[in-house]
Amino acid sequence: MSKTNVKNKRSTAIVRRNRRKAYLFLLPNFIGFVVFTLIPVAMALFYSFTNYDGNRRMDFIRLTNFIKLFSDSSFVISLKNTIIYTVGTVPLIIILSLLVSVLMNNGVKGAPIYRAIMLFPHIASIVAVTVVWQFLYNAKNGPINQILRSIGVVDPPSWLSDQKTALLAVMIMIIWKGIGYYMITYLAGLRGIPKDQYEAATVDGANAWEKLIYVTIPNLRPVTFYATIMCIINSFQVFTPIYVMTKGGPGRATSVLVLKIYEDAFVNYKFGYASAEAMILFLLILVVTLIQFYHNKKLEA
């Protein structure tokens, strides 16, 4: 037997032993992962091409669900509302959290306390927070309208009970809830900016504003990109605040994609159709994720 042969035999033995060890460690998580995540992902795609009603019927109906979707006015409205909601909340959350993190990083007395308070809305139960805001928005007696009336607004908006303002009201609450989380992300990014860049800028005679524009914001570009992507993905998935506050109403004014998926699946038992809607959600998220993926690749290259 040659030397290399012995070596090969030994290394295959090692591979086999390592493999056995590795699978023992993996197994407890892997079984759960396969059954409750991996298989459902594949099934979701399959369901979307069927008319599965959660019970007996399951015929393969090819693209029928997807074709029906775009003539289903409540789906189209939900998709439109999701996009309005995303376009309305994401930029404000990102800009406000960038602003406040830059200010906090600029020497504010008591910053740790303010930071802790601002993060709390993100951590607190979304149901509880939504219930409180529902009270605050109460059209007749809610504190928001009482305050508006006391400063001379004669006819304050009815917020959640008016088709024109309901979605806006939800969006204001979500912006309020989201700022803290992205502020924390930005603060971590700010800590990573090399000090000497600021020193160099000072030597060049830059003032605070110029440092912000030419040093801070360019250095934060990857964080901003990441935060925007995450924020968009989260907005696509909004459900609980809407379900608790308005259940999509008044009319369909605040119906969003996930609410529609939930209702079709678990109220109307149209599993196949709801899965097709879920695929549209998945496609939206996939597109955003792929943008992030290629952007990161470009940065690395």
Partner: peptide, 24 residues
Amino acid sequence: VLFLLYLATMMVPYQVVMIPQFSI
């Protein structure tokens, strides 16, 4: 390969798998 599988499913939101999960 296995780790890539984990990573790939991380971007699939809960709302997409909730229906098949429910029937399982």
